[in-house]
Protein backbone atom coordinates (compact mmCIF):
# COMPACT_ATOMS: atom_id res chain seq x y z
CA UNK A 1 0.00 0.00 0.00
CA UNK A 2 1.35 3.45 -0.85
CA UNK A 3 1.40 5.74 2.10
CA UNK A 4 0.51 9.30 1.28
CA UNK A 5 2.62 11.34 3.64
CA UNK A 6 1.94 14.96 4.35
CA UNK A 7 5.00 15.97 2.36
CA UNK A 8 4.02 13.84 -0.65
CA UNK A 9 0.51 15.18 -0.51
CA UNK A 10 1.71 18.77 -0.63
CA UNK A 11 4.13 18.05 -3.48
CA UNK A 12 1.39 16.32 -5.40
CA UNK A 13 -1.12 19.06 -4.79
CA UNK A 14 1.34 21.78 -5.77
CA UNK A 15 2.65 19.90 -8.79
CA UNK A 16 -0.48 18.54 -10.25
CA UNK A 17 -3.27 20.65 -8.82
CA UNK A 18 -6.54 18.99 -9.64
CA UNK A 19 -4.74 15.86 -10.80
CA UNK A 20 -4.06 15.02 -7.19
CA UNK A 21 -7.77 15.05 -6.52
CA UNK A 22 -8.49 12.91 -9.58
CA UNK A 23 -5.88 10.35 -8.49
CA UNK A 24 -7.80 9.74 -5.31
CA UNK A 25 -10.90 8.65 -7.18
CA UNK A 26 -11.40 4.88 -7.47
CA UNK A 27 -11.03 3.24 -10.87
CA UNK A 28 -14.72 2.48 -11.27
CA UNK A 29 -17.58 4.81 -10.55
CA UNK A 30 -18.89 4.56 -7.02
CA UNK A 31 -22.12 2.80 -6.31
CA UNK A 32 -25.17 4.96 -6.03
CA UNK A 33 -27.92 4.70 -3.41
CA UNK A 34 -30.08 3.23 -6.19
CA UNK A 35 -27.59 0.38 -6.75
CA UNK A 36 -27.50 -0.29 -3.03
CA UNK A 37 -31.30 -0.27 -3.03
CA UNK A 38 -31.33 -2.83 -5.85
CA UNK A 39 -28.91 -5.07 -3.96
CA UNK A 40 -31.09 -4.75 -0.86
CA UNK A 41 -34.27 -5.75 -2.67
CA UNK A 42 -32.44 -8.74 -4.13
CA UNK A 43 -31.58 -9.72 -0.56
CA UNK A 44 -35.12 -9.20 0.77
CA UNK A 45 -36.81 -10.74 -2.27
CA UNK A 46 -38.53 -7.46 -3.13
CA UNK A 47 -39.95 -6.83 0.35
CA UNK A 48 -39.85 -3.31 1.74
CA UNK A 49 -37.90 -3.37 5.02
CA UNK A 50 -39.59 -1.97 8.13
CA UNK A 51 -37.73 0.10 10.68
CA UNK A 52 -37.11 -1.17 14.20
CA UNK A 53 -35.75 -4.38 15.75
CA UNK A 54 -32.32 -3.94 14.11
CA UNK A 55 -29.70 -1.50 15.41
CA UNK A 56 -26.66 -0.52 13.42
CA UNK A 57 -23.84 0.97 15.46
CA UNK A 58 -21.22 2.96 13.58
CA UNK A 59 -18.99 5.91 14.44
CA UNK A 60 -20.36 9.31 13.41
CA UNK A 61 -16.94 10.30 12.11
CA UNK A 62 -14.41 7.74 10.89
CA UNK A 63 -10.94 9.22 10.60
CA UNK A 64 -9.63 6.29 8.60
CA UNK A 65 -11.98 4.72 6.05
CA UNK A 66 -9.79 1.61 5.95
CA UNK A 67 -11.07 0.27 9.25
CA UNK A 68 -14.45 1.47 10.40
CA UNK A 69 -15.87 -0.56 13.30
CA UNK A 70 -19.48 -1.56 12.66
CA UNK A 71 -21.83 -3.51 14.92
CA UNK A 72 -25.24 -4.88 14.18
CA UNK A 73 -27.72 -6.12 16.73
CA UNK A 74 -31.18 -7.56 16.14
CA UNK A 75 -33.84 -8.09 18.81
CA UNK A 76 -34.81 -11.73 18.73
CA UNK A 77 -35.35 -14.71 21.03
CA UNK A 78 -33.06 -16.80 18.79
CA UNK A 79 -34.97 -20.02 19.57
CA UNK A 80 -35.98 -22.92 17.32
CA UNK A 81 -38.49 -21.17 15.04
CA UNK A 82 -38.04 -17.50 15.91
CA UNK A 83 -34.59 -16.35 14.95
CA UNK A 84 -32.71 -13.99 12.66
CA UNK A 85 -31.66 -15.78 9.50
CA UNK A 86 -29.31 -13.23 8.06
CA UNK A 87 -28.19 -9.63 8.15
CA UNK A 88 -26.62 -7.90 5.18
CA UNK A 89 -24.52 -4.73 5.26
CA UNK A 90 -24.47 -2.24 2.39
CA UNK A 91 -22.39 0.91 1.83
CA UNK A 92 -24.09 3.28 -0.60
CA UNK A 93 -20.95 5.12 -1.69
CA UNK A 94 -18.41 2.30 -2.11
CA UNK A 95 -17.34 0.96 -5.53
CA UNK A 96 -19.54 -2.05 -4.77
CA UNK A 97 -22.39 -1.61 -2.30
CA UNK A 98 -22.08 -5.11 -0.77
CA UNK A 99 -20.02 -5.23 2.42
CA UNK A 100 -20.86 -8.49 4.16
CA UNK A 101 -23.70 -10.87 4.96
CA UNK A 102 -23.96 -12.53 8.37
CA UNK A 103 -25.87 -15.81 8.69
CA UNK A 104 -27.17 -16.74 12.13
CA UNK A 105 -28.62 -19.94 13.60
CA UNK A 106 -30.44 -20.66 16.87
CA UNK A 107 -27.01 -21.72 18.22
CA UNK A 108 -25.82 -18.13 17.77
CA UNK A 109 -27.67 -17.26 20.96
CA UNK A 110 -27.71 -13.57 20.09
CA UNK A 111 -28.09 -11.95 16.68
CA UNK A 112 -25.19 -9.58 17.16
CA UNK A 113 -21.90 -9.20 15.31
CA UNK A 114 -19.05 -6.72 15.07
CA UNK A 115 -16.53 -6.33 12.27
CA UNK A 116 -14.40 -3.65 10.59
CA UNK A 117 -15.21 -2.35 7.14
CA UNK A 118 -13.81 -0.10 4.41
CA UNK A 119 -15.61 3.06 3.39
CA UNK A 120 -14.49 5.02 0.33
CA UNK A 121 -16.06 8.32 1.40
CA UNK A 122 -18.72 9.87 3.60
CA UNK A 123 -21.86 7.87 3.03
CA UNK A 124 -24.81 5.95 4.42
CA UNK A 125 -24.32 2.42 5.72
CA UNK A 126 -27.42 0.24 5.66
CA UNK A 127 -28.07 -2.99 7.57
CA UNK A 128 -31.00 -5.22 6.63
CA UNK A 129 -32.15 -8.19 8.73
CA UNK A 130 -34.17 -11.12 7.45
CA UNK A 131 -36.14 -12.96 10.16
CA UNK A 132 -37.11 -16.65 10.09
CA UNK A 133 -40.78 -15.66 9.58
CA UNK A 134 -39.80 -13.77 6.42
CA UNK A 135 -40.16 -10.21 7.73
CA UNK A 136 -37.37 -7.73 7.00
CA UNK A 137 -36.08 -4.79 9.04
CA UNK A 138 -33.45 -2.20 8.31
CA UNK A 139 -31.42 0.57 9.93
CA UNK A 140 -29.25 3.25 8.36
CA UNK A 141 -26.41 5.45 9.66
CA UNK A 142 -24.38 8.15 8.01
CA UNK A 143 -20.62 7.83 8.55
CA UNK A 144 -18.39 10.81 7.80
CA UNK A 145 -15.06 9.62 6.40
CA UNK A 146 -11.93 11.78 6.55
CA UNK A 147 -9.57 9.48 4.58
CA UNK A 148 -11.19 7.06 2.12
CA UNK A 149 -10.40 3.36 2.32
CA UNK A 150 -10.53 1.95 -1.19
CA UNK A 151 -7.02 2.56 -2.48
CA UNK A 152 -6.45 4.87 -5.41
Amino acid sequence: MTHLTRRKLFTLAAGAGTLAVAANLPRTANATPEEAQKAISEFTGGKEPQSGKITLTAPEIAENGNTVPISISVESEMTGDDFVESVTLMAEGNPNPEVATFLFTPLSGRAEATTRIRLAKTQNVVAVAKMSDGSVYSDRKEVKVTIGGCGG
Partner: peptide
Protein backbone atom coordinates in the same frame (compact mmCIF):
# COMPACT_ATOMS: atom_id res chain seq x y z
CA UNK B 1 -23.23 -21.35 14.70
CA UNK B 2 -22.36 -18.33 12.57
CA UNK B 3 -21.32 -17.59 9.02
CA UNK B 4 -20.19 -14.45 7.25
CA UNK B 5 -19.93 -13.91 3.51
CA UNK B 6 -17.27 -11.27 2.98
CA UNK B 7 -16.99 -8.75 0.19
CA UNK B 8 -13.93 -6.61 -0.59
CA UNK B 9 -15.30 -3.86 1.66
CA UNK B 10 -14.18 -5.81 4.74
CA UNK B 11 -10.96 -4.36 6.18
Amino acid sequence: VFECQLDPAIS
